Each structure stands twice: as C-alpha cells, then as structure tokens.
Amino acid sequence: MLNRLFRAVSALFLVGLVASCGGAKPEPTKFKSYDGPPVTQIVVKKGQREMYLVSGQKVIKNYKIDLGSQPVGAKQFEGDGKTPEGLYFINRFNPNSLYHLSVGISYPNNDDRARAQMMGLRPGGDIMIHGLGPYGRAANRPDWTAGCIAVNDQEIEEIYAMLARNGNGTTGVPVFILP
C-alpha cells in the first residue's frame, strides 16, 4: 500500500514537472522567414562600408559592414586581408558557420585565379557574408575579417532569410563589390 502511494505521488510530481516546462519561452531561432520581394542583386560599396540588397531597381535593405583587415584594393591572393572587388554570385549557404550564419560568394573566379597564379600564389577562397558569431567585432575594431563581409548576427539572419527564401536557397544572385 505504501509502495502504491509512493508511485502515485512520484507520478504526480513528474507530471507537474513536465507541465511546468511547457510554459517556457521558445528558444530564439537564427532561421527567420521572409516573404517580401526577391533579392535580385547585392551591391557592396567598400569605401562607404555599406551593402545594399536590391529587388529590381529598388533597395529593399541596406547594412553597415566590416571588411577584410586590409580593406583598400581588390583581393589578390590568399592571406592579403583584402575583400574582393568585381562581379561575383551567391553560391552557397552555411547554416553551421562559426560566424552564426554565412552566405558564400563565388570568389575566386577565373580572373582571380589567373592573377594569383601569375604571382605564384593561391587566390584564397571561402569569401562569405557572415555574422559576428562568438568573435564579436574582433576587439571592437572595424575591418577585422580575413576578406569577408561582416554584419551583426541579427542582420545575417535577415540576409540569410531574404536570400534563402524560406529554405529554397537562392543561389546565383549577383554580388557587385565596388571599391
């Protein structure tokens, strides 16, 4: 009899414990949804530290950005700390980025490879638009990346959603990176 009473009280306690968990706030998610106009191009103005997401001829969103640690001039080779300049394309999405989320840019293209090869160097790669992740803003200094374009984590969530279009991964969007 005492054993049954103990089991009943234990069961009620467990039911109460599980029920109390249901009222907790849901974890915030880094995967947002977006149902606005499609992004048809991205324009990066390195000198102004601005990035514009464009639909047709209308800017739908703009962001302040950080660049590579040596922001003046186009990327020439791996390790130069420069952000590329020219026409590239969105070519991949990384939901598991060390920098919260990231969206890949198609650097290096054939011209970039040839230029680096003429110098006997590798062009580098893995150029992304990404968030800050655990690195913050690299000791609060601007232009801290290895050549990528950085925004804050909330902004990369927006950008990722705008380009991914609710999971459909829109690759091929042109990215114009201007001096």
Rank of each mutant, 00 (worst) to 15 (best):
N94K: 05
N109L: 02
N91T: 09
I42Q: 04
A19S: 15
P38G: 04
Q57W: 06
D111W: 03
R115N: 15
D80I: 11
R4H: 08
S97L: 08
V103C: 01
L14N: 00
R49W: 10
L67H: 05
L53C: 03
E78Y: 14
F176G: 00
Q48L: 15
R137W: 07
V18C: 13
I90G: 01
M162W: 11
T40Q: 02
A19C: 15
G104T: 10
G136I: 04
P95I: 12
S20P: 03
E157C: 02
P95H: 06
G120Y: 09
R137Q: 14
V175I: 14
V9W: 00
P95S: 14
M1W: 07
P71M: 12
R4V: 07
D66E: 09
G125M: 10
V72F: 14
M119K: 15
G104S: 09
Y99V: 00
V9Q: 01
Q41N: 13
V72S: 04
L67V: 04
L14A: 12
K46S: 12
F13Q: 02
L178Y: 11
V39H: 02
C148P: 09
P26L: 14
I127A: 11
A11P: 01
Q117F: 11
Y135P: 00
K82G: 03
T170N: 13
L163M: 13
P38L: 01
N91P: 01
E27Y: 12
I127D: 04
V72Y: 14
G56W: 10
Q48T: 08
A24C: 09
F176I: 08
V44T: 07
R113D: 02
I60D: 03
I60Y: 03
Y99M: 06
Y63I: 00
R92F: 03
I60R: 08
M1S: 09
L101R: 08
F89E: 09
P95R: 15
S55Q: 10
F31I: 14
V39S: 01
N110L: 13
L14I: 14
V103Y: 03
N91F: 02
T40S: 09
F13V: 13
Y63W: 07
V15P: 00
P37L: 12
Y135V: 02
R115I: 08
G56Q: 08
F93K: 02
V43R: 12
A150Y: 08
G131Q: 08
S33Q: 13
E85W: 05
A161R: 01
Y135G: 07
G22V: 15
L178N: 14
I127M: 04
